[in-house]
């Protein structure tokens, strides 16, 4: 067990951890705004990847920049449609279970639609985000570098938006008290539409970033969907800095755990940690109180 090996495990753990963090941020946005969990969030990430790779790059031959903009825009619209179709109509029903089931079913619909539109074959974009940077015996892949940079920029952008723009502040109000927000003249439904649109945009960015790591397939996001949830619980549910801390912690710990336990139990680390936190420190590491 050399120093280089431990460093390598930590670095790839950080990169994967940032993916969990972004997943955690994406559903925290919706949870904060509507009080509901979006159980189709991993399918939205997958849809983003399919739209970018399958549709814009491979079928329409767009450049990466154009394809990214097109994907982000189309996913924003998709998010708003989902808000209008599921979250807004269902959130005020007798039980939140209606909206939750609505999102579960939507996930299945998205998945089968992707299969029908882009086919069942997994595929990749040749040469996309390929390559590595080498520092001595430590290897950092180009994809991992991009993931870390984009994740950091994304958190900064979201923080600026929520704290320094009028609509961002309005989202805070909606999150705290919907009735009071309505009385203050905030259009709650429209606000929720935009929040879910932003969440879908974050999903599409995650989708684009993980293409070179996971290939585009119908099962590409199964595991990051669940681990992103664990990241939120561990870091502090409903709080962005908590998402980052939780995600990165899971990423590093599950990689380092393989030094002491068999690697097939790696996935358990995130879930055992999540249960421990739920029992001992339900507020998460950063202990943020809403």
């Amino acid at each position: 067990m050399s120093f280089a090996m431990i460093m390598q495990l930590i670095i790839s753990g950080i990169a994967l951890g940032f993916i969990y963090s972004m997943v955690s941020i994406e559903y925290t946005l919706i949870f904060n705004s509507t009080g509901l969990l979006n159980f189709s969030h991993d399918k939205l990430i997958m849809l983003g990847a399919y739209a970018f790779a399958g549709q814009f790059v491979l079928r329409m031959g767009c450049g990466y920049v154009v394809a990214t903009i097109a994907t982000v825009l189309s996913m924003f619209i998709t998010g708003i449609l989902i808000a209008k179709g599921i979250f807004n109509p269902l959130r005020n029903m007798a039980s939140p279970i209606f909206a939750v089931i609505g999102t579960v079913i939507m996930g299945r619909i998205i998945k089968e639609l992707c299969r029908i539109i882009w086919g069942a074959t997994a595929f990749n974009i040749p040469g996309f985000m390929k390559g590595t940077f080498k520092f001595g015996s430590i290897v950092i892949t180009r994809a991992n570098t991009y993931i870390i940079i984009v994740a950091v920029l994304l958190v900064i952008a979201l923080q600026l938006y929520f704290n320094h723009t009028k609509s961002g502040k309005a989202m805070h109000c909606v999150q705290q008290n919907k009735t009071a927000a309505t009385l203050m003249g905030i259009n709650v439904s429209q606000n929720i539409n935009i929040t879910i649109g932003i969440s879908a945009v974050v999903c599409s960015i995650i989708g684009i970033l993980v293409i070179s790591l996971f290939s585009v397939s119908l099962t590409m996001t199964n595991m990051i969907g669940i681990k992103g949830f664990a990241a939120g619980v561990i870091g502090g549910f409903g709080y962005f800095p908590g998402c980052i801390v939780g995600g990165v912690l899971i990423g590093i710990l599950e990689n380092l755990s393989t030094l002491v336990i068999p690697s097939i139990y790696k996935d358990c680390v995130a879930f055992v940690l999540m249960i421990v936190f739920l029992l001992v420190q339900p507020k998460g590491i950063l202990g943020h109180k809403k």
């Binding site: 090996m5 994967l16 990689n255 393989t258 790696k266």
Partner: peptide, 20 residues
């Protein structure tokens, strides 16, 4: 012998162990 689970997306630790 080292294992991984179905759907695993990061094999760094196992491959590093093989290398070492």
């Amino acid at each position: 012998t080292l294992g991984h689970n179905s759907g695993d997306t990061d094999m760094t630790s196992q491959l590093m162990q093989f290398i070492s």
